[in-house]
């Protein structure tokens, strides 16, 4: 289960916190720092994180979603990738 720490850039990050908390997968939202809001989320599978990123990017006024931390220590060995 990947656990990710992200930083959202927003003109008024305080007003964004509740919207972020409402997104499934978001488990912790930190205190705003200037125009940035830190948050942590967890997804059931590795492939689920991209839609979550998209959901965060789609929130009103969000200028950027950057990543600050990613843990994948519990991931099983990768499947054979078909290309």
């Amino acid at each position: 289960m990947p656990v990710l720490g992200v930083v959202l850039t927003h003109p008024d990050p305080g007003a964004l916190a509740d919207l972020v908390r409402a997104i499934p997968g978001v488990v912790l939202v930190g205190n705003p720092v200037s125009n940035r809001l830190p948050a942590a989320f967890e997804t059931a599978r590795k492939g689920d994180d991209e839609p979550l990123f998209e959901a965060l990017r789609a929130l009103p006024g969000v200028l950027a979603v950057d990543l600050a931390f990613a843990d994948f220590s519990d991931l099983p060995p990768p499947d054979e990738v078909s290309r």
Partner: peptide
């Protein structure tokens, strides 16, 4: 524990970037 670690890293990055 990992979620708290992730949030701490994100908070540190937000602070550092600012």
């Amino acid at each position: 524990f990992l979620a708290m670690t992730a949030l701490a890293a994100a908070s540190a990055a937000a602070t550092a970037a600012t």
